[in-house]
Design a protein around this nucleic acid. Structure first.
Lengths: 336, 336
DNA sequence: TTGAAAGCGCTAACAT
DNA sequence: ATGTTAGCGCTTTCAA
């Protein structure tokens, strides 16, 4: 592992010039820069991030904090963020909080404070004021996905609106008896997202003058299995609904499987709609509202970069709305 | 952000003593240590990883390199590794190679060389000799999952044996006409794993004196969808197999769905077995051979730690076999 | 057991 | 445009 001084020697310049040339500073003449670059690549020189970080206060590393790793949505966001970061020469350091409270504390009170990261992306995490202020005190920019979060720039879909559109779509197809599979209390840690979706669902019904029937709601935990169980309960009621709106595609897929298992047809007997555009959605012909998680990761990185490398006249938007898109497939149909 | 000197001042000792106390060195008296610890925690002091890393050459950070993120197996391994690392005060920096060749080059020629990581875990990656020697030249220990890899300590299941056991299990149930859904050429990047599994399958058949019928093999790409497609082809042959062995649970689940779609029953008409014990396996009642990916991640971390912090008389095993376990559920039955 | 001081490998003023 | 030099915040000899 050659150091900067070996490069300097080989190129016949000072280490300062090497540093300047390698960091693309302007004040280096063409020929000098070329000699330095050639020397560096000949020696296979790579800057030590510790030394460089210590000198500049910048690590070229971004921390990503997530509540779960093992779910399509989260790993997709990370995938998007990772490739955007790599492209810009940044590393991604992962902090998975699924372990529980103790883990979360140590991440925020130790790991994120040791100056290993220049910035933090927090996904679907309701940061506490103290967590936020700790980061801001260190001058570590944060971007949240799935906000809003007081004092933090966020990127988020309007969950109430998305749920309303799903429900409205079913209403427009002539359905009146529309069930909803939402989240339970404990899944609330993701930003009251289940609640928002339920609110949107109820708002659409209310707007259409359809009474809200509590027996048409079931809680799940955002898995195929829980969606299946919830749908089984909904469909074995005396008056079974003609449509189901699930708060996630995985639950919607569970519902589709339940419908089939009962010898009924989708969408002939029951229409099903979800949210996400999960990788399995097209396989199951699921109508859904897509929310492009990879893109969300990419955009979070862009927001961070604006803040880390201020350009001319960027305005740092505070809470950026995320695009969604209704994807109609074969799981929904006009009420028979 | 207080520095070490503030802690030293508050505790009334030198920075050297603070460093020693905080790093658990023996040569610090009880009372002194207590005063230092108290001062540090009162100030909320956290060591700067850059400064510490520069001084020691150790970063307390491990790089994890994976070919995909968005698959149950990989994110499970990472989850296991992450929590094991966090527990030991290590960060995990993620390098996802799914982007393609260019990305891979930059990871090995730039990112991993800038001394940001103390060690590397490579998952299902056939490292080239040059990639390996680069790491070893920097004195960066590597552990591979899914080996063997020349010159690298690895952790791996015996894929041939696993496939043989799956097939044998079906044979023991009286099946003769056993189809196999394996991998295609391009999925070969994961260590010829598809090939190994096919070899095990054929070996079991040969041992039982069952002729190998090429029309009973179909290639998939380790997704539910591809398993479904492959099974559809297998089951629409004039002589349909009575059992299917899929090289992954996701493909096995696709197969189960295909069987049902054709109006047949699992396991009544067709038995299905997979490999993995995917989170959906129990929901689909899938018989499978479990391979505990989280555990694999945890053990890779343990191997690295042995190497990073050599204890007394550890012998560093070179290629460690990984345990697997047959999990019998409802997708397999004696031939009717 | 503790302190003083010399680095670790870079970058950024400040000179020239 | 380039070189000199003083840190960045720790750890670790070496001395006491």
């Amino acid at each position: 592992m050659p150091g900067i001084d070996e490069v300097a020697r080989l190129a016949g310049v000072s280490t300062a010039t090497v540093s300047r040339a390698l960091n693309g500073k302007l004040s280096v003449s063409g020929p000098t820069r070329d000699r330095v670059l050639a020397a560096a690549s000949r020696l296979g020189y790579v800057v030590s991030s510790n030394a460089s970080g210590l000198a500049t206060g910048r690590t070229k590393n971004v921390g990503v904090v997530i509540p779960f790793l093992n779910r399509w949505f989260y790993s997709s966001v990370i995938e998007g963020a990772e490739s955007a970061l790599l492209q810009r020469g940044y590393d991604l350091t992962l902090y998975n909080l699924s372990g529980g409270g103790e883990e979360r504390r140590s991440v925020f009170e130790h790991f994120l404070l040791r100056k290993r990261v220049d910035a933090v992306i927090a996904i679907s995490l309701e940061l506490t004021p103290s967590e936020v202020s700790r980061m801001l005190a260190m001058n570590t920019p944060i971007v949240g996905i799935g906000g809003p979060l007081p004092g933090v720039r966020t990127l988020s879909v309007d969950d109430v609106e998305v749920a309303r559109r799903c429900t409205q779509y079913l209403i427009d197809l002539g359905h009146h008896s529309i069930a909803h599979i939402g989240g339970s209390q404990e899944s609330e840690r993701d930003f009251h997202l289940p609640t928002s979706r339920r609110v949107g669902y109820e708002a659409a019904l209310a707007d259409a003058g359809i009474p809200i029937d509590p027996s048409l709601f079931e809680a799940g935990s955002f898995t195929i299995e829980s969606g299946h169980r919830a749908a089984m309960r909904l469909l074995s009621q005396p008056h079974r609904p003609t449509a189901i709106f699930a708060a996630s595609d995985e639950m919607a897929i569970g519902a589709i499987l339940a419908v089939r298992e009962l010898g009924l047809a989708v969408p002939g007997d029951v229409s099903v709609i979800g949210i996400d555009d999960h990788e399995l959605a097209s396989f199951f012909g699921l109508t859904t509202i897509a929310q492009f998680p990879q893109e969300q990761g990419r955009r979070a990185v862009e927001m961070l970069m604006e803040e880390l490398h201020p350009g001319t006249g960027d305005t740092l938007a505070l809470n950026v709305p995320l695009p969604v898109e209704l994807v109609v497939r074969q799981s929904t149909a006009r009420r028979g």
